[in-house]
């Protein structure tokens, strides 16, 4: 492995809706080519953190730095430049329903490159075949299953060969096999494109299968209570909340049923 180079640095980030604080004082670093997991129970602010990182919601305090540039302190123009390096896969794909898959994937290419329509079509077909949707160019999102919509969303996210890929609950609503295939696809794309991946999820299988770094958000204390490689965390963390989450509450269940682990 090459020497770890910080790609995204989050410093003392505090996010709130009005007076209601969601998470405070988050500080962590995502290295280049990491698969970084943002985990925590439901409603702890994982998605809000993602929104702050991709530039959809301004944090109340703190910084999100991309290669040393503080995103929220930058000018609008510079921000847009940084955002062009992002690919975001939303929870249910968020494909534009009035456009075909080809048009969905082509839109970022048409907006941000000056390729000819023929070249764009070639790239669109390539991206769709990368996610296993070759031949589905003329389909509308409403004609696809949930898993296919997600893969199509991924094709759109990688249209511009982004440096950073963000995933919001990629395996939610997928069967275990599809979820696993999607995980493999994420790994494969990371390896071949050399992208940095940030994933918001609470799927334990994915967390252990692909994550190599993570941050654990807690809803009660409204801050992060652990960070690092999830496989290390489950083995060595002393915090009962983290252990309980990463073992699917095995200790809690065992206590409830009165059996020893």
């Amino acid at each position: 492995m090459v020497k770890a180079e910080p790609h995204i640095v989050v410093q003392e980030l505090t996010m709130a809706y009005g007076d209601f604080v969601i998470q405070r004082d988050l500080t962590f670093t995502v290295n280049r080519s990491d698969i970084f997991i943002v985990m925590g129970g439901s409603g702890c602010g994982k998605s809000t953190l993602l929104r702050a990182m991709v530039g959809l919601q301004e944090p109340v305090k703190g910084k999100v730095m991309y290669q040393g540039v503080s995103f929220w302190d930058a000018e609008q123009k510079e921000r847009e430049g940084i955002m062009q390096n992002f690919g975001v896969l939303y929870q249910s794909g968020a494909l534009w329903s009035s456009m075909t898959l080809a048009e969905n994937v082509a839109l970022p290419l048409r907006e941000y490159t000056d390729l000819s329509p023929d070249r764009i079509n070639e790239v669109v077909s390539l991206k769709l075949s990368l996610v296993g949707l070759a031949g589905f160019e003329e389909y509308y999102p409403s004609e696809l299953s949930g898993g296919m919509k997600k893969r199509a969303g991924l094709a759109r996210a990688i249209a511009l060969d982004p440096e950073i890929l963000f995933f919001d609950e990629p395996s939610a609503g997928l069967d275990p096999v599809s979820a696993r295939l999607l995980d493999n696809l994420i790994l494969e794309l990371r390896d071949s494109l050399g992208a940095t991946v940030v994933i918001v999820t609470h799927e334990l299988a994915s967390i252990f299968a692909i994550g190599n770094n993570s941050v654990f958000l807690d809803a009660g204390t409204k801050t992060m209570i652990a960070s690092g490689d999830p496989k290390e965390l489950v083995a060595h963390s002393s915090d009962p909340r983290v252990r309980s989450f990463l073992t699917r509450g095995a200790e809690v269940v065992a206590a409830a049923w009165g059996i020893a682990l």
Partner: peptide, 24 residues
């Protein structure tokens, strides 16, 4: 390059679905 090989393999991993392409 290795990355190219892997992406090419990925792109051809799922064959184009027969009959999926729509006649326009």
């Amino acid at each position: 390059p290795r990355g190219v090989q892997r992406l090419l393999a990925l792109a051809s991993a799922v064959p184009e679905k027969k009959g999926a392409r729509k006649e326009s």
